[in-house]
Amino acid sequence: MTQIWGRAQQQDFRSRVRGCLLGGAIGDALGAGIEFDSLENIRRNHGEQGVTDYVPAFGRRGAITDDTQMTMFTVEGLVRAHIRRDSGAWHPPTDVHRAYLRWAATQADWGPDERKQDAGWLAREEWLYSQRAPGRACLSGLGDERMGTLADPKNPGSKGCGTVMRSAPFGLLVGWEPQLVFQLAVECAAQTHGHPTGYLAAGAFAVIVHAVAQGDPLDAAVQRALAQLSAHQGHEETTEALQRALGAVRQGLPTAERVESLGQGWTAEEALAIGVYCALVAEDVRHGLLLAVNHSGDSDSTGSICGNLLGVQHGETALPPAWVVELEGRAAILELADDFAMEMTQGTALHGPGASSAAWLARYPNA
């Protein structure tokens, strides 16, 4: 897992991390206002092309949902896991689970609890203390302190898309081997969703992001994910969904109706298939994201997945500037992205047996 980073590599990686997190949040925000609308209603309310810009959701334009909230806490958990390795305690699923419990507190509490010394900076962001249509399985899976595992998962019958929409950050662990990225995403998905399709789709998405983050073409990245899936029991639904996404690319010009042929995105494998398909056929970021949200289904989650993929593929500067400017929480998302990139590329300069940055450990307490 140790990697030597040159300056140009660090800059490219930071741009991809920023692109991944911002792109996912933009897709999330584009779909937030139409998440529960049918395609017929979307076209009736917004014109034949559907939405072409942010529409109001949760009292504002550019509002993010639980998809981006949970993605941010995934990132924070991974940063803490790498810091905690200094103490000899190396179990990333535990650190991610603790981060998810901090997210769950934002859905129940009025605001940050300043008495919690190990909360870290992200849990003190007051704007995150807002319910944005969180999934029932995510809330119930994190309703107590017990961590779901593959041997004893939470919500064993659930395969909702709440696993996939938060799992892009695992793919940004570019110094890891693909099978380890897959395994970590799967283990963390089982903390809320115990159906094989629910957690295997999360692992597949992480592997796709992982390959694209290192410069692989998206179609080759999907083939890598299919190879990883084939070794796991219960992979059939996820494998079939990805194969249908690849097949849809060859069926003609992309349309909303073709998107809907892949499902509605409420389940993990359908959301993954739609997000992957829209990223594969995208003429540019704007085209791909609008295709990913204008359908009768879970528009914010499919938009988020597509945005993660297009953002990590092309980097932050490919994102439409007007959408970046109006995005809720942009400053915090960028701050988190830069912290993650710095930890992954320069972590040994921030903490270790020799000396540690007190400011860094205050941001990410390793207790």
Rank of each mutant, 00 (worst) to 15 (best):
E260Y: 10
R124W: 00
N366E: 12
R98K: 14
M147S: 08
V324C: 05
I42Y: 01
G31C: 01
D109C: 11
A206E: 04
H97W: 12
R124P: 03
Q179R: 07
F340A: 12
K116Q: 14
G352H: 08
H91W: 15
E114Q: 14
A29E: 00
L289G: 09
G6Y: 07
W110E: 15
V281L: 04
G77K: 06
A213Q: 09
G120D: 10
A63I: 07
M70H: 04
H210A: 09
L150Y: 01
I64Y: 05
D67E: 13
S87C: 10
I64M: 10
R146E: 15
A349K: 14
K116I: 15
E236Q: 07
I34E: 01
T317Q: 12
R43P: 09
G162P: 09
T68E: 08
D67L: 04
N45C: 14
N41R: 07
L242H: 11
G77F: 03
R61C: 13
P56N: 02
Q131P: 05
P320V: 09
M344F: 02
G19Y: 04
I4H: 06
N41G: 00
F205Q: 14
L139N: 06
T192P: 08
W266C: 09
E177Y: 07
V293S: 05
N41P: 01
E177F: 00
F13H: 05
L150E: 05
A104T: 01
S357H: 08
G62C: 10
E125M: 01
G143F: 01
G354K: 10
A331I: 03
A104E: 09
C161D: 03
A189H: 12
A362D: 14
Q183V: 02
G171M: 04
C138T: 13
M147Y: 05
